[in-house]
Amino acid sequence: MNTHVRYTAALAVLLLAGLAVAAGEESVQLQDAPDRDLVVARCSVCHSVDYVQMNAPVLDRAGWQKSVRKMIDQFGAPIGEADANRIVEYLATHY
């Protein structure tokens, strides 16, 4: 699959899971790199991933770490340690 198809597929999984994505949200494209689809799949359960782009100028690695922990510890995101580390790595490297 090319990247756009993969990306669209990740959002389609969310739709199948009964989650509403906002109109226009599919236009948000995170940087194509390893674990991009993991980030989209996990983060998009609760919010559009333009949150990632918006906070890119603000957050460094420690900030991304704190942000991901907040999603897990305070917002109840069911993300295990291994996936959390991969998500932080992607965000810290590409944003």
């Binding site: 906002a22 333009d50 918006m54």
Partner: peptide
């Protein structure tokens, strides 16, 4: 600048939550 239903085009910060 994007318009939500019933709104004029506003500065979109995030899609969801809006």
């Amino acid at each position: 600048l994007l318009a939500l239903p019933g709104k004029r085009a506003l500065i979109k910060r995030t899609f969801r939550p809006p």
